[in-house]
């Protein structure tokens, strides 16, 4: 499966302020504060993972950026300005509840969506045709959505999101319901868009996707920010200092001065360090033995573990690293 074409980055993207800046946004529905004092930004050329349990306020926040919903308090800037219709041609949106017109040929639907994003009708049609052909849907251009398989519809929906080569891509649970083939296509699309300079924000429940794709993450619950920053820094902050060693002939744990305990993990050994000891100390210690070391890495907790720990309130707000923006 080939990824759909990513054009050259927009020249505007490099010189402009961060595509999205959210500052102390609040949104209340009835008696519930769905978003509370939420601040973050999405930068050009990065992929921000927007994580949180169901009902955390992710979709509402995305809709506020899109100006579908207005915040009660706080400010949102999109390309340096308040959100609004003028920015729509620069934004691509894949909603969680996505669909196509069932009784309209898919090419017509995509051309219409492209035109809504400011493309001239003929160009929108031309691009839609080219992209559909690129993802192997060249023979169903005139087919109505109702006559297409779910997988085909998913591909068409992804194309609708990037048809106009947006500078900001907002993806709400993009991997939900995708078959493995389409999930792979979407991964390629997302990375290609980021690499061409687009800012991408993606909400997801699939931690392995977030871990594999995201540069930074924003974790919220009950509308509040719990974690925000570069993925690696967050993982390092949540690390218990353990080291995973792959190799043969490792000495018994009791003989290692810098180690308190060890346990086998997937063909390797996970060694917990004594207080005050560093991975460097352990590395030197092992180097002085006859052990053959194939791989030596600081153990970082998987993102789903961090998610569960944080959301469960185990370490609420503790250990949140400061983002690059200083917040």
């Amino acid at each position: 499966m080939r990824a759909v074409t990513a054009d050259a980055p927009s020249p505007r993207a490099a010189t402009e302020p961060a595509p999205v800046v959210v500052e102390s946004a609040w949104k209340r529905y009835g008696e519930t504060d769905v978003v509370q004092d939420l601040s973050f930004e999405i930068r050009a050329g990065e992929l921000l993972g927007f994580l949180g349990p169901n009902g955390a306020g992710k979709t509402t926040t995305m809709r506020m950026i899109l100006d579908i919903v207005r915040p009660d308090r706080g400010t949102i800037r999109v390309f340096g300005e308040p959100p609004g219709v003028v920015h729509s041609p620069r934004i691509g949106y894949l909603p969680e509840e996505r669909g196509l017109y069932r009784d309209v040929p898919v090419l017509d639907t995509l051309a219409y969506f492209g035109a809504l994003k400011g493309l001239p009708r003929s160009e929108a049609r031309q691009r839609a045709r080219r992209m559909l052909e690129e993802v192997g849907l060249g023979d169903v251009l005139r087919k109505k959505a109702a006559e297409m398989s779910r997988g085909m519809q998913q591909k068409a929906q992804v194309i609708a999101t990037i048809l106009h080569q947006p500078d900001l891509l907002i993806l709400d649970e993009p991997f939900q319901g995708l078959d493995p083939v389409n999930a792979e296509m979407l991964r390629n699309v997302v990375l290609a868009q980021r690499d061409r300079g687009a800012a991408v924000v993606m909400s997801t429940h699939r931690m392995e996707e977030a871990e594999a794709l995201c540069d930074r993450i924003l974790l919220i619950d009950h509308g509040r920010r719990l974690l925000y920053g570069p993925l690696r820094e967050i993982q390092a902050a949540f690390s218990d200092g353990a080291v995973v060693v792959h190799g043969e002939g490792l000495p018994p744990v009791e003989t290692l001065r810098s180690v308190t305990a060890g346990r086998p993990v997937d063909g390797a050994v996970r060694l917990s360090l004594r207080e005050g000891a560093s991975p460097r100390d352990l590395f030197h210690e092992l180097a002085g033995t006859d052990a053959r070391i194939d791989r030596f890495e600081v153990a970082t907790p998987p993102l789903d573990e961090i998610f569960i720990r944080v959301v469960a309130g185990e370490t609420r707000r503790a250990g949140e690293p400061r983002g690059a923006d200083g917040r």
Binding site: P95, Y101, R102, F113, L116
Partner: peptide, 20 residues
């Protein structure tokens, strides 16, 4: 109602504000 049932409305409304 059709756009709502098709779930196409959210894509449309992300490009066109409600009044227009």
């Amino acid at each position: 109602t059709e756009e709502k049932e098709n779930r196409a409305v959210e894509i449309v409304i992300s490009s066109v504000p409600p009044l227009p």
